[in-house]
C-alpha cells in the first residue's frame, strides 16, 4: 500500500528529472531519452486499469506542458495508449508462472530478461505512437521509425542502468 502512496512522488521526480536532465541529453538530434516513461511502465498493477488510464493521461499531459518537446496532447495520447497496450502486452509477454491475477503481478520481481521482454516493445510502441502522432503525416514514416528506434534504444539503455542502480532484490 505504501508503494502506491509513493507513486505521486515518483511521478513528480520522474517528470522533474526528465525536464531538467534527460530531456537535455539528446543524441544526434534524433535520440531523445524518455526515461519518465519508466513510471508508466512500472506503474503497479494493483491500480485499476481505469485509474491507470487517468494517471497516464495527466502524466503525459504534464510532460507535454513541462517540456514542450512535442505538440500539447501528443504525450498524453501516447501515454494513454501505452497503458492500454500494456494491459494486453502483459498477457502476451509475461508467462502465467509469474502471476495468477493481474493484481498479483509485481513488475519489480520479474527476472531481468523477462522484464526486458516486457519493457522494450512497450517502449518502442510508445515511441512509435508518440512520434507518429507528433509528425501527423508531415514527416516521412522513415523518420518516425528512426526516431522511435533511437529513442527506444537510448531510453532502454538508460533505464537499464537506472534499474541496476536502484532496483535491488530482484529474483534472478
Amino acid at each position: 500500500m505504501s508503494r502506491l502512496l509513493l507513486q505521486p512522488i515518483y511521478a513528480v521526480l520522474y517528470l522533474t528529472l526528465q525536464a531538467a536532465l534527460f530531456g537535455q541529453m539528446v543524441v544526434f538530434g534524433v535520440a531523445i531519452p524518455q526515461l519518465y516513461l519508466m513510471f508508466l511502465i512500472m506503474l503497479p498493477l494493483q491500480i485499476s486499469l481505469g485509474f491507470s488510464l487517468l494517471i497516464a493521461f495527466f502524466y503525459g499531459l504534464s510532460y507535454d506542458l513541462l517540456t514542450q518537446t512535442a505538440a500539447t496532447g501528443v504525450g498524453s495520447f501516447a501515454a494513454v495508449f501505452l497503458i492500454a497496450f500494456r494491459e494486453l502486452w502483459i498477457q502476451i509477454s509475461i508467462p502465467k508462472i509469474y502471476y495468477n491475477t493481474r493484481q498479483d503481478l509485481e513488475l519489480q520481481q520479474l527476472p531481468m530478461n523477462q522484464f526486458l521482454i516486457y519493457m522494450i516493445p512497450l517502449l518502442f510502441f510508445h515511441q512509435l505512437t508518440y512520434y507518429w502522432v507528433d509528425s501527423f503525416g508531415m514527416e516521412g514514416f522513415g523518420m518516425v521509425i528512426l526516431k522511435s528506434f533511437a529513442g527506444t534504444v537510448y531510453t532502454g539503455i538508460l533505464s537499464l542502468i537506472l534499474l541496476v542502480l536502484f532496483y535491488t532484490g530482484r529474483k534472478s
Binding site: 487517468l54 493521461f57 499531459l61 498524453s76 495520447f77
Partner: peptide, 8 residues
C-alpha cells in the same frame, strides 16, 4: 482520454 488528447 484519447479524444481529449486529439482535441488538444
Amino acid at each position: 482520454l484519447q479524444g481529449i488528447s486529439l482535441y488538444l
